[in-house]
Design a protein around this nucleic acid. Sequence first.
DNA 1: CTTAGTGCAAATAATTTGCAGGAGG
DNA 2: CCTCCTGCAAATTATTTGCACTAAG
Lengths: 139, 139
Amino acid sequence: MTSDPARRMTQALRDGGVRVTRQREALLKVLTEAADHPDAAELHRRARALDDSLSLATVYRTLSVLEREGVVLRLPLENGGARYEVADAPHHDHIVDLDSGQITEFRSEKIEQLQREIAAELGFEIVHHRMELYCRKKT
Amino acid sequence: MTSDPARRMTQALRDGGVRVTRQREALLKVLTEAADHPDAAELHRRARALDDSLSLATVYRTLSVLEREGVVLRLPLENGGARYEVADAPHHDHIVDLDSGQITEFRSEKIEQLQREIAAELGFEIVHHRMELYCRKKT
DNA sequence: CTTAGTGCAAATAATTTGCAGGAGG
DNA sequence: CCTCCTGCAAATTATTTGCACTAAG
């Protein structure tokens, strides 16, 4: 059984005709083990512990491959700069804590439904969407 | 009466203790007359017609002043790069046409309400939020 | 007058790309 | 072995900043 998520993902890549290299495995491991939402530089830092030679350029190249393969999700935030997460969980949106920078996930079927209705009314079909609530902890 | 929106905005700036220069007036005029959502470079191009000496650096500096003063809204999109709009209309969100790049505005009180509820449940207070639907014209 | 605002050019920050060598399948 | 992948450094893109000068109030 492919119980290990990283293993399942490498398999998905191989099936997609993408080579699974040492550096890609390192990055996948770091991604699956990340509880937070790291940016490219942070992923690079962490993955280097597993593969010292890994370059930042490859991190970027790999992230875009993984995104294309549907294995990771890139979330570009307000300040420019993007954060990444594995695309295993069902779709969700994000709350960004303005003070700590921490990201909380949430999901609302109702909102998704409303979005679809609104787009349809205007003659559009949603390909994907983004929603971020920039918040502060309630006192 | 301050019927002219550009005039009302310059007044708002003066009240805020911000100097209203020739280049700022040019930019404000271009902004208020823009039916679309131009980026900084495009605003520069258009405003140059009114003030030939206006530099791109000043466009950026002015845009961030105007944003701080609550006169314009900056909307950073997925590809990096931001678009701008005057902050006169009530809050709304955006539909981005993936094919043409054109932006359509919409507003849903229901969604806003749901967002507030969700944030509150998680112990947050929304400071501001962003929602973009990346769409394709329905066939 | 006083100091915020400006143009210019150089500096950042995040990401991308050309090239020559290296390793997956 | 034949490409796809990689590291490195240089290139891009969007934006910011230091400096000496100009102009708003």
